[in-house]
Design a protein around this nucleic acid. Structure first.
Lengths: 188, 188
DNA sequence: ATCCCATGTGTACGAGCGTACACAACGGAG
DNA sequence: CTCCGTTGTGTACGCTCGTACACATGGGAT
């Protein structure tokens, strides 16, 4: 039982390498070989731990999601009812986009890959739901989902058109989605 | 001139075939060979007309955009100030998503490919701007852009998570983006 | 101590890719 | 009529891919 030469670190390193590869060369560049080289493990090791590339992508996307979740978690203000939710969201998005474009591209590429790869869809859906769930503590579920959608759309436009991120604008339009602007009542 | 065996129809047929291929197998399945087979032309013909796959994708995306533009144009209600813009948009989105999933997937896949392929970015940006421009006739540019972003996000969530499209919901949240809810005065 | 099998590795193979290149077909110039 | 350049086609090459398979390795059962 899990004795022998069992090496869980190896698996993790492969996932990390996969993420790095996708970040650098995109999904198109994600192959068993490129990952093996990046992780500095033999080719057979990648095929052993992940029989298909889909499996590897699922693991990578899941891990990327956790990375984003941490960004959210590190922003305690998101759960504080006294903060301006739209402003918090806009700032968080800015922080995320402003960091390394590579990281954002990577997560989005993995996320968007779900369009064609059904295996990824549950993970993508999970991400949506997780973020919406966090937001639901500050507003109703419908609004939360819309907030997520709008954030997605804004990020997409930034990424796809090269337009710089405008936090002011994001805060403004995000705020419009909120039902009662500044209206409490969602206490408890 | 341009006599000889000059055949402009051939080029168009290749683009059409490329769109069909992407629709069926995704960008990953787009190769000179697959397109050649789909278009029923020799392999050399595809490489002759489109030296690189990027070129072919640009042409395909451009054509796909025009397809969407036609959908918009066919909805005269979008420009009529008396209609409910949010409802129009929601209905249009529903119509688009409700049709053939293949078509939508195709356009989105091409559109999203701009994330990694700079060659596609201007075309993607153009699409954004075109839609926003149409919307700008009914509202201010900032709102128009937000509307586009939210539509994008909503479509994405539908496509990525498999959730059925909820037109009611779309109308509701799209409406919240509009500055004066139901408020006329933007006449002329 | 010996055997056995799960675990992990390295190499080889067939398929499909973009690309390059040699060749057929056609129409005008001399 | 002959020659030649443009236009389009078909085949062949080198490369990389996923996959399969033969081979080390090392702990547990006997």
């Amino acid at each position: 039982m899990a004795g022998r030469r069992y090496d869980p670190e190896r698996r993790q390193r492969i996932i990390d390498a996969a993420i790095r590869v996708v970040g650098r060369s995109g999904i198109a560049g994600l192959t068993h070989r490129s990952v093996a080289q990046e992780a500095d493990v033999p080719l057979g090791s990648t095929t052993y731990h992940f029989k298909t590339l889909d499996e590897l992508m699922v693991a990578a996307l899941r891990q990327a999601n956790e990375g984003f979740a941490k960004v959210i978690a590190s922003r305690g203000g998101l759960e504080d009812p006294r903060t301006d939710l739209a402003a918090e969201l806009a700032a968080l998005t800015g922080e995320w986009l402003g960091g390394e474009r590579t990281g954002v591209e990577l997560e989005y590429e993995l996320y968007l890959a779900a369009l064609r790869r059904p295996a990824l869809r549950p993970v993508a859906a999970e991400w949506c739901e997780d973020v919406a769930a966090v937001l639901s503590r500050r507003t109703d579920p419908v609004t939360a989902r819309a907030l997520v959608a709008l954030m997605d759309g804004i990020c997409l436009q930034v990424l796809l058109t090269g337009t710089p991120y405008d936090e002011e604008y994001a805060r403004e339009v995000l705020g419009r989605l909120l039902p009662g602007e500044g209206g409490p009542g969602a206490g408890a």
